[in-house]
Design a protein around this nucleic acid. Structure first.
Lengths: 336, 336
DNA sequence: CTGAAAGCGCTTACAG
DNA sequence: CTGAAAGCGCTTACAG
């Protein structure tokens, strides 16, 4: 293969017999060019295989038309591939390119964001991870808007859009009480995530209000840990009669532990409820009662917010919490 | 939030009392600068919050340090989020940024690749999709190497790295025969994918050699379609006694159809075998016998190939087919 | 409408 | 080692 060779606007200009500026104008929608010269340019461009260089354009327009997406958990929770799919689709529809960073537990965003800024992204969406105040400040200083997806930071210049996790937890609690459960358990996700904390908060608020004691275990949003935690919950002298898992993947772990591991029945012996409503939740093998996150609305809101703040940097950040919906399936007993 | 403002090397130069070129050199590893001036520059840079502009750098070095990843099926098959995760991690470790495109059935790569080229990516990896010869030619003309992941094109300038899909199909066929199945079925993925075609080819080769007739249905790599296809396979007067599904997700659909839908037993009534070995395959609910794709090796080979061809554009494309491994679990009867 | 010129923020020969 | 200058490939005032 030959070395990198790019046709430039000057070469096209020479062939078309116009100036380089005219070639440039031929590619700009609102520019003043007669249709005739534009055709002449486009023809020459085609002959030479010319395409404008986006780097050079970005350099001078101070707009890269790239946004950064930072995501994690992409292999451990099917919810995130869906979020990524929707986000990137929306940006593509808007003509924005996506620079992607997949982060892992051992990586700090403080090393990632500077790389995004170095490439002059116009804005950043952060999913399933949170922002240090240093970085938040740095983005603000540079004028690069940041939007958090399903996370929030009390005071910062970032926008955020979350599922109403607390209300979701409360809905589950109320549903469990209505269906006469006496010994509910909360299976927490990662302890440092606001999602798990808020779901638990909402859940406990209702349980406490009704004077019901709850059990608690931690599953770190992970199938295997949830499986083990469920075994612990069930081997107690006072086992749980229902488990609210902070995401669907953990609920599957709980389900498998109860049915395959302990040979108990769902929902007769134990009710299992999840959170997310990923597509698998409706598969017959799981048939999971769960809280559906309004992913589409959350994605739409995030992208629209980011784009509007890219266009008008003076716009203040926005925050919104969007209600989820309880989807009742066969993994839980139902109110009579 | 204020408007975009970037500190430039010239400002740093002024503060540090050196020339702009010296500031530039301070950021280049191999450049001749005394440690003392470098420190002076870095200090000034820190004070001003300076960071080099990657766009300007790319423009002049003719290397963007960005690679394009084109991926699809990211929500329908957990195999691909894993591929994406591994690919992007490897590139990040190599200091390459990733420009991501998630494509859908209705989108042609012929619209995507020009966007990647416009942004001067140094190379492109295409996963779960294939390349038109026009585009292949265009990339070659521009000197941008392309690597296909688990796809191939007979003659083109692209590299490719695949699982040995044909051998995988043969392994499954032999295993099914060894465990005395008499009426095997092949459940095809998308008909236009080489992965499904090759797995079927290998499967049939062994079956034919042994004079065994096979059934066939199409599931398009999709859970629901596989569920329906399985029902058809079992409702025949001569139902299948084993189903080789062209990926794991379809195998789950088959499993659910057989157990939840038709109340038959696996593996006593029917053996189910998949392909991929995604993490869920080992969950107790599925406990799926399947062919494990050597994802890590495939990813490593692809990334290394792309990087080496970015460095040396004169290197010819490489092709490699890597053997998978049959993972025997509980969804299939075993040879006696 | 069209062209000549300046300039975006860098890297890199070329001198010194 | 360091600086002045050219130039990467564009866009965009400024004249005409």
């Amino acid at each position: 293969m030959k070395n990198k060779t790019n046709t430039t606007s000057t070469q096209v200009a020479n062939l078309a017999g116009v100036s380089q500026s005219t070639v440039s104008r031929a590619y700009l929608p609102e520019s003043p060019v007669t249709e005739k010269t534009r055709q002449k340019v486009l023809e020459a461009a085609k002959k030479l295989g010319y395409q404008p260089n986006a780097m050079a354009r970005s350099l001078i327009t101070r707009r890269s038309n790239m946004v950064g997406i930072v995501i994690s958990n992409v292999t451990t929770n099917p919810f995130y591939p869906e979020v990524l799919d929707l986000l990137s689709r929306k940006f593509q529809e808007n003509g924005q390119k996506v620079m992607l960073f997949v982060v892992h537990r051992d990586q700090s965003l403080d090393d990632i964001l500077p790389q995004l800024l170095e490439y002059q992204v116009d804005g950043i969406i952060i999913t399933a991870a949170t922002l240090s105040s240093d970085m938040s400040y740095e983005c603000e200083r540079r004028g690069t808007p940041v939007t958090l997806f399903n996370r929030y930071i009390p005071k910062s210049n970032a926008s955020w859009f979350c599922c109403d996790n607390k209300a979701g937890g409360s809905m589950v609690a109320q549903f469990l009480l209505d269906s006469r459960h006496k010994r509910p358990a909360y299976l927490a996700g990662s302890e440092d995530t606001t999602t798990s904390i808020d779901r638990e908060k909402g859940f406990l608020e209702i349980m406490n209000k009704n004077g019901v004691d709850t059990l608690r275990e931690v599953g770190n949003y992970n199938y295997n840990e949830a499986y083990a935690a469920t075994v612990r919950l069930m081997e107690r002298p006072d086992p749980a009669d229902s488990i609210f898992c902070s995401n669907d993947i953990m609920a599957f772990g709980a389900l498998d532990a109860i049915r395959s591991g302990m040979k108990l029945r769902v929902p007769e012996d134990v009710s299992i409820i999840g959170f997310d409503d990923i597509p698998m939740a409706s598969w017959p093998s799981f048939n999971l009662t769960t809280v559906r996150q309004p992913v589409r609305d959350m994605v739409d809101a995030s992208v629209e917010d980011l784009i509007s703040r890219i266009k008008k940097p003076e716009n203040p950040p926005n925050h919104k919490v969007i209600m989820g919906e309880l989807i009742v399936r066969g993994s839980s007993r139902i109110p009579i």
